[in-house]
Amino acid sequence: MSKVDVIFNKVLKILEWIMIMIFALLVLDVLFQVFSRYLLGKSFTWTEEFARFALIWMTILGAAYLNGKKQHLSMDFLYQKFSSSNQKKVAVLIQALIFLFALIVMVTGGLNLVYTTLHLEQLSGTLRIPLGYVYAIMPFSGFLIMCFSLYHIFNIYNTKEI
């Protein structure tokens, strides 16, 4: 296994643990909200906002993770009809399109969103944290997706993997 493969697997493992931690915090947050509302008779407003932010982070990080594992949603009926050499070309094209989407929408657009919200000093309603920190997951995940796409293109060219 090459150094790149080792780094790739470590990044995926770290992503797994980050998502597990976010999910655990989300579960604890929702359980605390239910406990406080029904047993204490008091509802804390910050728990709903935290749950929303945790779900956003988990979803966007999950998209990067699934891209890295090549388990993202795809419809491959037409793809399966191609010859083996054409499947390789189409696989590279798909990864290139994923790379471009991540670059343009997630990284460029995400950095613009983060910059704008931080510059305007927008704060979340209840937690009062800068929204730029919440939105920072978008360019981070986009960068990961770009790296994973390059890794997959490299593997398509250097192995028989499709």
Rank of each mutant, 00 (worst) to 15 (best):
G109Q: 02
L25D: 02
F148H: 04
S83I: 05
F77A: 13
L55E: 03
L144W: 00
Y133T: 02
Y79N: 01
Y65C: 04
F154T: 07
A64R: 01
L40P: 00
R52F: 08
R128T: 12
L144G: 00
T126A: 14
L73C: 05
M106I: 03
S85N: 14
M1E: 11
L15W: 05
V90H: 06
S74D: 12
Q87M: 10
V4W: 08
L78R: 08
I22N: 01
H119P: 00
F53Q: 10
L55Q: 12
F140L: 15
L61S: 05
V11P: 07
S84R: 13
M58L: 14
L15V: 08
L55P: 00
N67D: 10
I129L: 14
S141H: 00
V107Y: 02
Q95L: 05
N86E: 13
V27Y: 00
F35M: 12
Y115M: 09
G132V: 06
H152I: 06
M1F: 11
L113K: 03
F148L: 06
V27H: 00
M138A: 10
Q87S: 06
Q80N: 14
T47Q: 10
A102M: 05
F50V: 15
S124L: 06
F148P: 03
N155G: 01
M58T: 08
G62Y: 08
L103V: 06
T59Y: 09
S2N: 15
L39A: 13
L39M: 14
G110T: 04
I153E: 04
S85V: 11
I56T: 05
V6Y: 13
F8T: 08
H119R: 14
A136S: 15
V34T: 09
V34H: 04
L113C: 03
F53L: 07
I20Y: 13
S124E: 04
T108I: 15
M21A: 15
S2F: 08
L127S: 01
I104E: 04
T45Q: 11
D29P: 00
K3T: 12
Q122C: 01
L103A: 11
F50N: 05
Q87F: 08
A64E: 05
G142I: 04
I129V: 15
N158H: 15
N67L: 11
H119S: 15
A51N: 02
S84Q: 13
A102P: 00
M146P: 03
N67V: 12
I98P: 02
K89A: 09
A64D: 04
A96R: 01
I137F: 07
F77H: 10
I14G: 08
G142V: 01
F8R: 14
I162Q: 09
R37C: 09
G110Y: 02
I18C: 09
K10F: 12
V134G: 01
M146I: 07
F82G: 00
Y79P: 01
T159S: 13
R128Q: 12
A136G: 12
I153K: 02
F44G: 02
N155C: 10
Y157P: 02
L26K: 05
V114Q: 01
Q33L: 11
I18S: 08
E49L: 06
I7G: 08
A96V: 15
F44N: 09
L15Y: 04
I60Q: 02
G110S: 05
S85Y: 11
N9L: 12
